[in-house]
Computed example of a mutant assay.
Amino acid sequence: MSATPTTGPVSPGRFTPGRTLRLGLSRIRYETTVYFRAGDTVFFTFLFPVVLLGIFSVAFDGLGNVGTNPDGSGGISQAAYYLPGMIAAGILLSGVQNLGVDIAIERGDGTLKRLGGTPLPVLSYFIGKMGQVLVTSLAQVALLLLLARVAFGVELPADPANWVTFAWVYLLGITTSAVLGIAISRLPRTGKSATAVIIPPLLVLQFISGVFLSFTMLPSWLQTVASVFPLKWIAQGMRAAFLPESFAAAEQGGSWNLPWVAVVLGIWLVAGLIVCRLTFRWIRKDG
């Protein structure tokens, strides 16, 4: 089987499915091992939402429950309130930030050039990247749920329908985030500038998408801006899965609006795939 072309847009070319899959699975193991060996990456993508959940839960505990009745009864703890947002932020970091920075660095330090000179199919490369994101993201979600349940006594959903909602929002969200991470890896001009180019906009996006602040606290124009991007919809879908139904009234439009969660994420997924197909190269061609 011929190697992936080193210039020009990626072409699927001819490949042997079995061998491509085996190489992809091998790349998943390799990529995951490398990921957990990078201390800064582990903290700022894997542990960051976990740390923030702990900080917010402790810091705001004195404010009492969220969504209490007029007589002060009911509501949910601060940890339960922030859990969906931290899961959504983790999805964004695991996919967009992780792959965006990682691939940009690999392009800058010559890793992609070296891979382009090997028989490794580009599909196997992507299987490795996507698989690593899925493995590390699932571990992150499990850690968040464990921390919320054990350390802060958060009652997880008992209705299977909530877990179905969580499952499809998670799978659509993590796939979209990973694809967008590959797409935006073209933005940094060098590997050294990758973190400076990618991380600040994502941090701003977390603040305006209902992760750290209640979405309806934002000005209407800022809500409109945030609604264009996928993080707002991932966070909304996670709130639908983990928060009581009464909290839907606090959402934009007064409902969880899950059909639109699926539509917007689907649009971003397709757009990301198109950008990846048109722009990904083993070797960056500046000019």
Rank of each mutant, 00 (worst) to 15 (best):
G116K: 08
F126H: 05
G24F: 02
G181H: 11
V154N: 08
T176V: 12
G74I: 08
R27S: 15
W260M: 15
T216P: 00
S57H: 08
R277G: 13
A178H: 07
G117K: 02
Q78H: 02
G266C: 12
W256C: 09
G74M: 09
S57Q: 09
I127M: 15
L83W: 05
W260L: 15
F166S: 10
P49Y: 03
F215I: 10
P17T: 08
F280K: 00
P157K: 04
A250I: 04
F152P: 10
S246D: 14
V275D: 08
S11Y: 00
A104S: 15
W163M: 09
A226W: 06
D286A: 12
T136Y: 02
T45D: 07
D159W: 02
A248N: 08
G24Q: 04
A80Q: 11
G131W: 12
F44E: 01
Q132L: 05
W282F: 13
I182T: 14
F212D: 00
L203M: 14
V122M: 11
R114N: 12
V270R: 03
G95V: 09
P121R: 07
I184W: 04
C276M: 10
L203I: 13
L265W: 07
I234D: 00
P70T: 10
G108K: 05
T6S: 13
V225E: 11
S57P: 11
L146P: 00
F43A: 14
S209L: 10
S214R: 15
N257Q: 13
F48E: 04
K232T: 15
G13Q: 15
S227I: 05
L144V: 03
I76T: 03
P84Q: 00
F36N: 00
Y30W: 09
L63D: 14
V211S: 01
L231H: 03
